[in-house]
Simulated scan of single mutants.
Amino acid sequence: MIDWAHVGIVVGMGLLVTLLGGRVVTAVFRMADSMSDRHTSRPHPDPVRSAPPHPEPADQPPLGAQAAAVTLRGGAWIGVLERLAVFASLLAHYPEGLAIALAVKGLARYPELKAPETGVAERFIIGTFVSVLLACGAAGLTLWLVTLV
Rank of each mutant, 00 (worst) to 15 (best):
V28P: 11
A135G: 03
A67L: 03
V10P: 00
L20N: 11
R49E: 09
D59Y: 09
P111H: 12
V104M: 14
G79K: 01
V48Y: 08
V149N: 03
P57F: 01
W144S: 02
V120Y: 07
V11W: 15
R83Q: 08
I78W: 04
L90M: 14
P52Q: 06
V80F: 01
L107E: 04
A68I: 08
A92K: 07
F29S: 12
S41V: 11
A5G: 07
G106E: 10
T128W: 01
R83V: 11
G74H: 00
L91H: 07
G21T: 05
S34I: 00
A103L: 15
P111G: 13
P57K: 04
S41H: 05
G75T: 07
T147W: 01
G97H: 11
P62S: 07
M31A: 13
P52R: 05
L98Q: 04
L15Q: 14
E122P: 01
A121W: 10
L141I: 07
D46H: 02
A139I: 02
G106R: 09
P43L: 13
M35W: 11
W4Q: 11
G21N: 06
L134F: 08
L19Y: 14
A138G: 06
G79W: 00
M1A: 14
L113T: 09
H39Q: 05
Q66A: 02
L102K: 11
A85K: 01
S50M: 05
D59M: 03
I126T: 05
T128R: 00
K105T: 14
Q66E: 10
W77T: 14
H44F: 07
A51P: 02
G79N: 03
V48N: 12
P43V: 15
V86T: 04
R109S: 11
F124W: 10
T18F: 03
A99G: 15
L143Q: 14
G22P: 11
L133H: 04
T71F: 00
L107W: 09
G137K: 06
L148R: 13
G14L: 08
A135V: 00
A135F: 01
V104L: 15
A115P: 03
R42C: 00
P62I: 04
D37L: 08
T118N: 05
A115G: 15
R109P: 07
Q66D: 08
P43F: 04
L102Q: 15
P61C: 03
A76E: 12
E117I: 02
L84A: 15
F124D: 05
P47M: 10
V24P: 13
E56N: 08
S50R: 10
